[in-house]
Amino acid sequence: MYYIHAIQSMNNSDVFKQEDIHQKLVEVSENPTLVTPDFKTYIAPTALRRLSPILRMGITLAKEVQAAVDQPFDAISVGTGLGCLTDTEKFLNVIYTVEGDVLSPTAFIQSTHNTIAGQISLDLGNHSYNMTHTQNNLSFEMALIDGMLCCEEGSKNVLVGAADESIEFLNKLKPSVFDSETLFTTSATFLAISADKMESSIAILACKTIANAAEISVETNAFLAAFGLSLEQINCFVLNTNELETPANSEVFHIDDQLGFNQSSSAFAVHVAHDFLKSSTKEFALIVNRSSNNYLGLILLKNDKTHN
């Protein structure tokens, strides 16, 4: 069991540094815009001038989570489905439009997926394990599995997160590429996890990914059965699918309604589930993240404030 000691998100709802975010979600609009703090209060101007939205979000969220937990992170594990798209597109424009012998390198340098985690380590002066996972919409689950493994191996304070940014070009490609009618949005969530309970009461019990998943209810029931649980005992579902029949008395959040299409949405789903459990006496929350090609991610959260 890995306790969540701090969690922060940024997306098209006003959620950064907010509590009870499950009550503050707004439906994704026609023209979703990222709600941000003044990044200058988090990032030095010499660094900020180069950074795309995904990097600004990642660094700011990591710093805010680091500030909430005293110890420096002893591992950093980040997921991203599509990576640093702004800089990738910018550099594609550079190579096909700039004539001359020399090319501006900044966009290329910042186009690699691990720029997010790398910039976090650079900004925090952190020399520990630094990993970037990219498995489409299961990227956060992969980062979380790695983060939990770091805890199992002895890390005391692990930063896990996921970030994805939208660029205008992406919306031209739907629905054919991502099997989604909803708009692409920009979103990131970062959290600190540890095997030590300390003041936290919300923990991640398990995370599982399945390639070539069978029917969602079959996979979900099997996943829960390993913890002696059934669907009826889950109090809160945060999901991106209608294929799972949820119990009548449970709280259900359809994450796509708030977030549109974002490949890091399951990280934000953990934040929603975390705040729901924290503000209640309910015990279990389940995040169900399916993709169009039968990949499935399942994350189980437990509130042990009132239970043991």
Binding site: T132, Q135, N136, T209
Partner: peptide, 29 residues
Amino acid sequence: YKHHPSGTTTEQMAEELGITGFVNTISTA
């Protein structure tokens, strides 16, 4: 553009190998 995501590269490989279950991609340059 369906081929673009790094994760999809691995999913295509998994399909060729017949591997299901745990399929992951790491991208650290």
